[in-house]
Design a protein around this nucleic acid. Sequence first.
DNA 1: CACTTTAAGTCAGCGTTGTTGACATTCCAA
DNA 2: TTGGAATGTCAACAACGCTGACTTAAAGTG
Lengths: 170, 170
Amino acid sequence: MADASASQVLGGESLLYLTDEQLRQGIEAMFFAYRGFTADPDRILQGLSYGRAHHRAIHFIHCAPGTTVNNLLNILGVTKQSLNRVLRTLVEDGLVESRVGRADKRERHLYLTEAGDALEKQLSDAQRARMRAAYRQVGPEAVAGFKQVLEAMMDPEMQRQYQKLRENRG
Amino acid sequence: MADASASQVLGGESLLYLTDEQLRQGIEAMFFAYRGFTADPDRILQGLSYGRAHHRAIHFIHCAPGTTVNNLLNILGVTKQSLNRVLRTLVEDGLVESRVGRADKRERHLYLTEAGDALEKQLSDAQRARMRAAYRQVGPEAVAGFKQVLEAMMDPEMQRQYQKLRENRG
DNA sequence: CACTTTAAGTCAGCGTTGTTGACATTCCAA
DNA sequence: TTGGAATGTCAACAACGCTGACTTAAAGTG
């Protein structure tokens, strides 16, 4: 009954990959994989009194130097108070520089310092190593499918953010 | 330089999908997609004074009724104090039943009550709807690749847990 | 039987990271 | 020039991870 739509065949193409059981597998795969995805950076950050939120902020400041607090807010999808706490510690610790905007003095433009860049490299190297190993293991076709599904799972708003970041880097 | 391994060609097969930029895209896709992945259950749970931790517990108790606290601990990868806080509220609220083991009276076997099953259904229906839409949009080959990459990203320990859950359901 | 190990639960405390509410500053437009 | 919108900051609170110390009960072992 719940699998009514999946047990049908449309245009000669099997829909067995849409059963509740298949979807449940995908859900659990996301859960376990995300743990692996964050495990390496988490290990590096623990003991530095930093967490995942700091990692995310550093990642996106690295990708878009000079971005404003508001822009970062939209990308990260958290409240500005939450982000502010993270940014404050990063600025205090000399990993991020916050410059008052020239055109609009309300805005703060964010940049990684040398120390910030070093930590970003350490974190992303670890994360990329795992991704690279996974990619290499399964091959380019599987990777293409992986990205297609992830993109389709996003909210439209996030999808827009995701594609904007891709465009900004060519 | 960082892309040295990716800019080579091995056995005539392009490795361009292993560049740092491609990996970075995958990392960001995981980030945004996970937000979408948890968005619907989070929406349902907010206001019930429950959170993601409760959802995870309910999910795995549903999948493996009668599981013990210790087993759940291994699957979820959290401390027993953390899980206990969540389980206690679920038992108090009548969503989960905790039965003393017959063979080993130290163990507690966990079951969803009718109310617990109802909430599980509500949560997983929402999450599966999003997954089903994504799957349908991209087709079975992409879904196969998606699962391959996710599995390759897991820690070996998690991969074992994941496969065990699959086997238990055929 | 005495001893050790194991499963589960409890209590106290802490850190990260979400949340809302109140507030200061700056810009812009009526 | 004044009022509203936008931007960012500070304070307090809640959810949920964590560690450490402890108790209880049952199982296994010498």
